[in-house]
Computed example of a mutant assay.
Amino acid sequence: MNEQTTPGPRVAIVTGGSRGIGRAAAERLAADGCAVVVNYAENAAEADATAAAITAAGGQAVAFRADVADESAVAALFDLAEKTYGGVDVVVNAAGVMRLAPLASAALDELDRMLRTNVRGTFVVDQQAARRLRPGGAVINFSSSVLGLALPGYSAYAATKGAVEAVTLILARELRGRDITVNAVAPGPTATALFLDGKDEETVARMAGASPLERLGTPEDIAEAVSFLAGPARWVNGQVLRANGGIV
């Protein structure tokens, strides 16, 4: 009788995985059976806590520091995933920076910071994903529903997310024949530190009420969309999923 080897788990890299939507996505993918590499930029304690929570729940996870805009650091991130778990199947680009201001008064250094993380970071991570993902893999980038809402104060941030959508749609076509899907999730207002920072209660309440569901999204709501695109949604490709509770 021929001895059969049991294939290992699917392996996911989640950038910005130490908190907010990234952490929820990492925990959800682990619950789905993925081994997870939790990428972080600065807060080692939060990243370690995410990995520890996954491990405590019976999953596999390791934390790894890497600036997503640094090609050498991102290459090392993928090296670590391959060395630890044998390959990479899912990449979730949840790392992001948001600074709000009217265009006329926006600080250009803040624009540069968002471009570096949101655009260059997505591009660099996607580049490694395009080179290394195994057949059957999935790339999930992060856009924002603010592109359609066109809210004042969001011009710089929305510009970076427009670039992410362009990269997403083009990469999906460039990976023809590889059995790899490339999609983006575009959250609406979601109760994370990134969204809540600097907003007063009235603003938060108004934005929560904009959805027909009359609430803010939760990180777990967005993680559910990530889980769908990472696993069962093999016929969804080159799309932007607007996970926003019905805001138009």
Rank of each mutant, 00 (worst) to 15 (best):
L115C: 09
A233Q: 08
T190A: 06
R113F: 02
A230V: 07
E202H: 10
D126Y: 00
S143C: 07
P152C: 00
L151V: 01
Q128N: 02
A172N: 03
A223D: 04
A223S: 04
D126S: 13
R120G: 00
E224P: 00
A233F: 08
E165Q: 14
R132N: 07
W235K: 00
A101G: 11
A223K: 02
P189H: 12
A210E: 14
S145H: 09
V119Y: 11
E202K: 11
R116C: 04
V185S: 07
L147P: 02
E165C: 12
L169K: 10
D179F: 02
L103T: 13
E165I: 03
N237L: 03
L149R: 10
A166T: 14
A130Q: 10
E220H: 06
A193I: 00
A158Y: 02
E224D: 10
T122Y: 03
V167H: 14
F195P: 06
P219A: 05
G136A: 09
R134S: 14
D112S: 14
A166N: 07
L103W: 14
R132L: 05
L111T: 10
L194P: 07
P135H: 06
R215I: 05
T122W: 02
S105Y: 04
V236H: 11
L149D: 09
A186D: 06
D179V: 04
M207D: 06
